[in-house]
């Protein structure tokens, strides 16, 4: 599987400068934006770049019609799926470190009005990006990149335009008599424990997504 993970990074190396430049650009633009953008500067920058990585990764396979060659190699379809998920996880950790270091540098230089990256922000980048990838990748493995791009529009619509709906769901969740005791109990915990629980939920979602992807990819035919 190491060869597949290595390949994932090799094929995207020419975009590494774009990712790096985009990280700086996003940090600058979001920190200078009026309103609450500065509060979510790391999350928006991180999630956008990680999602770009997922998109490029799938688009490159489709463009090069590489599924036929990958499937003729002595590599199981499970490994082809897992390598995609593992490379997304590795990249998301890598890019979180990069934007964290950039934020640290900008703070030291007093270049921008942004604070250092916090544990909560790191967790919000990783969980949001992983959940988005967990929705996108099974669709890609089932239908290929072109059809998955249609779902991508829906994902972005929900992600950027569905915040009102999301807020309502959160309110219902927090005011529910069943969930109230759990929320109360959690609110007495430290941010690391809460963050850990959220990260654990994201890991469960990624694991479920990988299992679904494996199942749909196993039966896929390539014309």
């Amino acid at each position: 599987m190491l060869n597949l993970i290595k390949k994932e990074f090799l094929v995207q190396r020419k975009y590494s400068l774009i990712f790096f430049g985009y990280s700086i650009f996003m940090l600058i633009v979001l920190s200078l934006s009026p309103g609450g953008a500065v509060e979510s500067v790391y999350a928006v920058a991180g999630v956008t770049i990680i999602y770009m990585f997922v998109q490029y990764s799938c688009a490159i396979e489709d463009k090069n019609n590489s599924e036929k060659i990958l499937n003729s190699l002595p590599v199981s379809r499970n490994k082809i799926v897992f390598s995609k998920f593992i490379s997304v996880i590795l990249f998301s950790v890598f890019i979180t470190v990069i934007i964290g270091l950039l934020g640290e540098l900008f703070t030291k230089l007093s270049f921008l009005y942004i604070k250092k990256i916090s544990i909560e922000e790191i967790i919000s980048i990783l969980t949001t990006a992983w959940i988005l990838a967990s929705v996108y990748l099974p669709i890609y493995f089932k239908f290929g990149d072109i059809k998955a791009k249609l779902f991508n529009i829906i994902i972005f619509f929900v992600f950027f335009s569905g915040s009102l709906l999301f807020n309502s769901i959160i309110k219902i969740f927090f005011q529910n008599s069943f969930t109230m005791p759990i929320i109360d109990s959690l609110s007495n915990q430290g941010p690391i424990i809460i963050g850990g629980i959220i990260l654990l939920i994201a890991i469960i979602i990624v694991t479920l997504s990988a299992a679904i992807s494996t199942k749909v990819y196993y039966n896929r035919e390539f014309n």
Binding site: N3, L10, V11, K63, N64, S66, I69, S72, L73, V75
Partner: peptide, 29 residues
Amino acid sequence: KRRVAYVPEVPLLYDEMTLLEHLEFTAMS
């Protein structure tokens, strides 16, 4: 699949990987 080699009708290569990287990828696989 360890015992079979395939030459496709249409070359299937990654535009983003060099010739050496393709050969290394095949050898590693």
